[in-house]
Structure formats: C-alpha cells, structure tokens
Write a protein that binds this DNA or RNA. Structure first.
Lengths: 284, 284
DNA sequence: GTCAAACGATTCAAAAATGAAATTAATCTT
DNA sequence: AAGATTAATTTCATTTTTGAATCGTTTGAC
C-alpha cells in the first residue's frame, strides 16, 4: 500500500490546496486519467494550458518525487491493468471509521458543494434537454447502482410516461434493449464499480443514435467518456461506504429540471398521479 | 436581471477564477447563505479564515461594486423572503442553467445541516444498536419509499447476512412478515405519503417484541411515534419533488455505524464480498 | 453639531505562483 | 561511445495574491 496511491486519489486528497493553474492540471487528469502515461510533460502542459514548470511542480506538491517518477508509476500501473484485463476495485480501506453523524453529514455537505463546482452548466443543460425530448428513457444501473437507477426511475416516471429499467427483473438485457430508438435517451448510473455490460450498453446506445448521459463519480479510471454527457458527483465517504447523497441530489435536480422543461404536461401528469394515489388511499 | 443575481449564483459563475483564499470565502457562503446578511465583513473574514482585505476584494471580483453593496442587496432579499413566508411547491423559476442547480444543491446543503441538528444523539445510538444486534433486519418501504428501502438493503446486506425487504416481489406481505421474531429489528422508510400498511407493520412488529426504527420527514410531527426510534430528515425541495439527499445520507451513516459496531466481522464480510465481485468481474 | 466607535475600503510590503529561458538528464543515432 | 536530440528540472524575473496597517466613512450618543 506504499506507492499504490493512484493519481486521481492524490489529486482529490489535496484538491483544496491546489492553486488555479494546478487545478487546471487536476481537472485535466481527472478527465483524462491516461494522459500521464501517454503524453510528455510538455504536451500535458499545453493540453492543460499551463507552463512546463507548473506541471513539474504540480507533481511535487502531490507528493511524488518528480514528474518522471509519477509517470513511470502510471505506466507500470497501466501495463499491469493491461495484463490482467479485469479492473479491480479498490480494496476497502479501514479508514478512521469513527462514526459521528455530524462528521458524516459535514462530509456530505462538502460532497454536495464540490459537486456543484465540478458540473458544467452546458452539460447539465444538454442532459435535461435529452431527457425531456426523449421518447423513451432507459435508466441503467447494475450492482450497487441498481437502487440508484430504481430511484431515478421512480422520479422520472412521475414526469414522463415511458421510462424503462435495465436490468429488469430476471429478463435478459439484450431482448429488452433491442427496442432502443434514435429518439430515446439513456441515463446510466455508473458510480463505483463499472461493469462491462454497462460499457456495452452505452456503446450500443450510441451506435443506435440515442442520446447518452452518465452519472458517475470521479474515479472514472482510464476509459474516456462513456457517454455524451458525463455528470461527475463527489461520493467520498468517511468510512467503509461511499456516500450517494450527491448523486441522489443531482438526479432529483435532473428530474425537476425535466419537469420544468416539459411544463404543463408534467404538472398535469403529477397531479393526475397524485389524484390516483389519493383515490386508492393505500396500496401505492 | 438587474439586482436579481444571488450571491451563490455569482460565486458559481466565476468559481474557476477564484484564488485559494477566495475559494475559502466561496465555500463559506455556499454553506452559510445567510452569512452575508447577518455578519460584518470582519466576522465573515474570520469565519472563512481570510483577511478583511480579501473579503472586500472578493466581492469586487464577483462584480459587486463593494462589500457593502452586496450586503445591502443580501439584506433586502432576506427581508423580502421573510415577508412572503409561504412555501410553494409550484415551480419557482423557469431558467435551466447552472444557477438552478446551485440553488437546488444549496437547498440540499441546508437540508443536511438542519437534519444534523434535528436528530438526537441517543436515538441514533439506539438505532445503531438495534440494527447491529438484530438477528434479522426487515427493511420496509412502500411506494416512493421503495427505492429508498432498496437502497438501504443494498448497503446493509454488505454488513449483515440476513436483511429482508418488505414488500418483496409480488409476494403478499403477511406471509413474509410472519417470520418476525423478538430478536429482529425493523427499519421503516416513511417519507412523504404514509400508508396504512406501514402502520400495521410497525404495530405488528412492536407487538412481536422486535425493535422498530423509522426514518421519516418532518410532516409527521405531531402524530404519535410509529416506532421506538424516529429519525427525522429534512426533505424540502425547491420544486415539484422532495429531495431525498438527507435520508440517503443518514442511512449511509447508519450502515457505516453498524459496520463499525460489528467490527472485524463486518470488515471481513465486506472484503469477502469485494473478493467475489473481483472474481466474477461483471454480472454483479 | 461633535465626538467616539464601528466598520469597510485602500495601501503597501511580503509571500506565493507562474512562465520563459537556461540547465541538466535521458534517449536515440550512427 | 560521442554527438544529437528530446524531455524534464531548475532558475529567475514578473505577476498575482495576501494580510497588516492605515485611512475614510458612517452611525449613534450626547
């Protein structure tokens, strides 16, 4: 566990201490995690829009002995993961685990704030547009993302009539997904462990001409953008679990914004649903 | 568009251009939106941990003529909102850029903070104890609470072996629930609309001698406690939907605290699960 | 009106950050 | 292996940021 700290981790640890140009570098690396292994210091500098000197200093500030060392480490790591093709998720680290609610919620407050800062306004607007215009929306979430997907669907269905879940019950994915059309949109929940199936789905979706949106965290290792629009949420938790408060918040916002965009239709639908709830009383 | 620009919006617009100490101020204001109206420049400076000079410059950089002007604007805005105190669930505004998201997340930040304040430490401790000691845990959530319940189970199952969902698939509730024992605990998600079934379940649970915990919002205040321990979360949203960020956060905390309480057992289980995930690669 | 107190704005010197250019290290050619 | 080439590091002058101290303005008490 000595030299295993990946770049993105180190960046996130000391994000607060970074200066403006260092943040440019930080964002560059978070968006293009392979950049360090693939490019020279000069190229990286110009990609991020800073001077070579700043790039060199950046890695020292992050605790690496030098740029070169960091690059070597990145290349080793890369060839490793080339080797055993599977992407291992981080071992669960035994962090402080002190367990004070105040600390926990404070950390989530930070997550929320940082999430606002990280999300680009134009991407968000695009996401809302895609979802609002889509004929069908496919909400995709495997493993730990399934509850999140469930949650997203529960909100979207109040606003739009045709929201499909992937995976669905015990049904095989391809059969379901076959009905995707260029007029659809896919909302992929991709926090934490990312599965190959998710990748395949996003790829198929893009091929089919549908719009793709992915909600993810900052650890997106290696893979370049999976979707047209990527909304990155902060999820760092104080202990064993990541915290999903900010993804939930972002998704609630998305639904709200979609409802807003759809205008009276959405309001009517909401009222109608509410009416049925009242009539039925229970059994919801 | 004359004087309508709120502070948080302006901060986010130019967040990328802010220096380190200015970011300290920015985060202070995002966390404490009322600070500008309530405190003097000096107090704010010391709260944020910067010098008065920096605070003064900060507001100029954001495009305000001066600190004073900004403060005056904030106070006017505040007294306005004091005036029309009612809370609409109508859409508040039609914009859809990032200012919207800023407002939304800021509102969730407030929800989180208020939630911390509202939850009593001893109740929380009891909740953790109940969940940790329980032989089986029943997670109950109907309607809109179902995704939340799903989510809670997904986390708890990583830490304890026997977590049951109610409702489950299409199976009738009583048949399932019959297996409840005095050594069990029930975690009821009761946010928003509460159903009669939920009430019945909690009542049966208490009769059976099992421990009962309910996670709920503030709309229930008044009517008698449904469960032994009630954790109230703030959920007010800016528009059509309630925001579930703080319940999610609280539940993540609960699971973390339970894991903590269980100690090595939980850690082993987590590692074991992680190992299986890695072996299987996908299909999670 | 005058004075005092409180507060915000400004100035200025010190510290930090930055990029251009020089220097050093490494890598490749022949 | 020596020279040529490329890339990383360091240096240094410039620019930016920052807080302590100072200056001005407003407010309120008498």
């Amino acid at each position: 566990m000595v030299q295993t700290a990946r770049l993105s981790e180190r960046i996130l640890e000391s994000f607060d201490d970074l200066t403006k140009s260092e943040r440019l570098l930080a964002e560059h690396f978070l968006e293009n995690p392979d950049s360090l292994a693939l490019h020279t210091a000069e190229e990286i500098s110009s990609l991020a829009g800073v001077s070579k000197a700043t790039t060199a200093r950046f890695f020292k500030r992050l605790g690496f002995p030098s740029f070169k060392t960091a690059q070597r480490m990145a290349r080793v790591r890369r060839s490793d993961s080339q080797h055993n093709k599977r992407v291992f998720s981080e071992p669960i680290q035994q962090r402080s685990g002190r367990g004070d609610l105040a600390d926990h919620l404070a950390s989530d407050v930070q997550n929320l704030i940082r999430t606002i800062e990280a999300i680009r306004g134009d991407e968000l607007k695009d996401a809302v547009t895609y979802l609002a215009r889509a004929e069908k929306v496919w909400v995709v979430g495997f493993g730990d993302n399934y509850p999140l997907a469930h949650f997203a669907r529960a909100q979207l269905i109040k606003v739009k009539p045709d929201i499909r879940m992937i995976p669905l019950g015990g049904f095989p994915v391809p059969e379901e997904f076959a009905s995707i059309r260029p007029t659809d949109a896919v909302l992929a929940l991709a926090i934490g462990r990312r599965t190959a199936t998710l990748r395949s789905i996003l790829q198929s979706a893009r091929l089919s001409g549908a719009r793709t949106i992915s909600v993810t965290d900052l650890t997106s290792s290696g893979n370049s953008e999976l979707a047209e629009v990527t909304l990155r949420c902060r999820t760092s938790g104080l202990s064993y679990f990541d915290s999903l408060a900010s993804p939930v918040s972002v998704m609630t916002y998305l639904c709200m914004a979609v409802a807003d965009r759809l205008g009276q239709n959405a309001v009517d639908r909401l009222k109608y649903i509410d009416g049925i709830h009242s009539e039925w009383g229970d059994l919801g």
